[in-house]
Amino acid sequence: MNLLHRRICRSDSWATRMHGEVLPWVCRTVPLDGDVLEIGPGYGVTTRWLTEKGGRLTAVEVDPDLAAGVRASFGDRVDVRTGDGADLPFPEASFDTVVCFTMLHHVPSPLQQDRLFAEAARVLRPGGVFAGLDSRLSLRFRLLHVGDTMTVVDPAGLPDRLRAAGLADVEVDTAPRAFCFRAVR
């Protein structure tokens, strides 16, 4: 992530918006009281919100420095692993819920995104929910990502991609700047 992007993702205003508006919208029908896996917590803004929902939380972060920061922030309240969401270090059917927030566009290719979707499906228990959020393409979004990895997910094509990964009952909800999704194994 570039410097501006890092500053925004660590800011109090970003946390306030995520906790007060975005995460309640995304997770309105997502069970968060069981074994929950968060893929790509970044600086831990979303992780902080998830820790208050009562589940047993595990987080996987590809960036070792960010993983260390999340680990230091939450101690034993969150099992933080350094790893790739497209190659999760967990056995099949380990989690009730898998979530990812504002990170899919940082996955370097659609093929890697599809591997992440398949891994999320693999580690979910039958009936488990995979849910998340990402941004929609806009000039502002593109400018924010100058020098960053930016592989935008088309919300219109997402249902087919999630079904191909082994998920069902796919729902996608769009807003002007973002979209959220929910699917079931």
Rank of each mutant, 00 (worst) to 15 (best):
D65V: 15
T97E: 05
A165F: 11
L139V: 12
L158A: 04
P24Q: 08
D33L: 02
D134T: 07
R71Q: 11
P159S: 09
V170L: 10
V36W: 00
L3T: 14
M1D: 09
R163Y: 09
L111T: 13
A67Y: 04
L37V: 03
G34F: 00
R71V: 03
A165K: 06
R28F: 06
F117T: 06
Q112F: 07
V36M: 00
T82R: 08
P108Q: 09
P126M: 08
P126N: 04
D96W: 06
L3H: 13
S11T: 06
G128H: 01
E92T: 15
A118E: 08
L37I: 01
M103Y: 00
F179T: 05
L111M: 09
R28Q: 15
R71A: 15
D35P: 01
A67G: 02
F74G: 08
V153L: 02
Q113I: 05
V172L: 01
R125S: 11
V78P: 04
V36Y: 00
G75F: 11
D63S: 12
A118C: 07
G127E: 04
R81C: 05
A178N: 09
R136D: 04
T46S: 15
D134G: 04
A168R: 15
T102R: 00
T47M: 09
E52F: 05
G166W: 08
L139F: 13
F117H: 11
S94W: 00
D87L: 13
P24S: 09
D79F: 07
R7G: 12
G147R: 00
Y43K: 05
N2C: 05
H5Y: 10
S135G: 13
R163P: 06
D65A: 15
R7E: 12
A118F: 09
V123D: 02
R122E: 08
G166Q: 10
T149I: 14
A67C: 01
R177P: 10
L111I: 11
G132P: 03
D160K: 11
D154M: 10
S138K: 07
V184K: 07
F181N: 02
A175T: 09
D33S: 14
V26G: 03
V60A: 12
P126T: 03
G42V: 07
V60N: 01
V107T: 11
P159H: 08
L23D: 01
W14C: 05
F141Y: 10
